[in-house]
Simulated scan of single mutants.
Amino acid sequence: MEKKDLFIGVLLGLITSAIGSFLYITFFISSDFVEGFNSLQRQGSLNKIITLGALLNIVIVLLLFKKNKDQMAKGVILSLFILTIYTIFL
């Protein structure tokens, strides 16, 4: 059960980061999502947007720790490490 919870936490962290990035591009970029995404990718700023999107994971980790879902919280933190490595090489 522990490995399953860890995997669920990683997926939850990656999905939450994607949702956060989507929300940032949708609300703070003056064009639609696809055009804004492509524009940020051309500018080389996509890694910064992914990092901003990952801020939502702080809330998820705190909620999971509060509900004693430690393995899922560790999975979310692991997803942050994965995103960090991804944004370094992006």
Rank of each mutant, 00 (worst) to 15 (best):
N57K: 15
F65Q: 15
N38L: 15
G44K: 00
N38S: 12
L55I: 13
E2A: 11
I25P: 01
L46I: 15
L78T: 11
I58T: 13
S45N: 15
L40E: 13
S30W: 00
G9D: 03
D70K: 14
T16N: 07
F33R: 01
I82V: 13
Q41C: 03
G9Y: 00
Y24E: 09
A73Q: 05
E2H: 08
K69W: 06
F7M: 14
F28K: 01
F37H: 01
T16K: 03
V10Y: 02
S45D: 13
G75M: 06
G53C: 12
V34T: 12
I19D: 00
L52E: 07
L83D: 04
M1W: 07
G53P: 09
D5N: 11
S30M: 03
D32S: 14
L23I: 06
Q43T: 07
K48H: 09
S45C: 03
S31M: 05
L12H: 01
L64F: 11
L55F: 11
R42D: 13
K69T: 01
K67I: 04
G53D: 09
I50Q: 04
I88W: 11
K74S: 09
F22P: 03
G9W: 01
S79R: 02
D32T: 12
M72S: 12
E35T: 13
I29C: 03
L62I: 12
V34Q: 05
T51W: 11
V59P: 03
L23K: 00
N47P: 07
S21H: 03
T16W: 02
L90V: 08
M1A: 13
V61W: 02
N47G: 15
S45P: 00
G36M: 07
I85M: 10
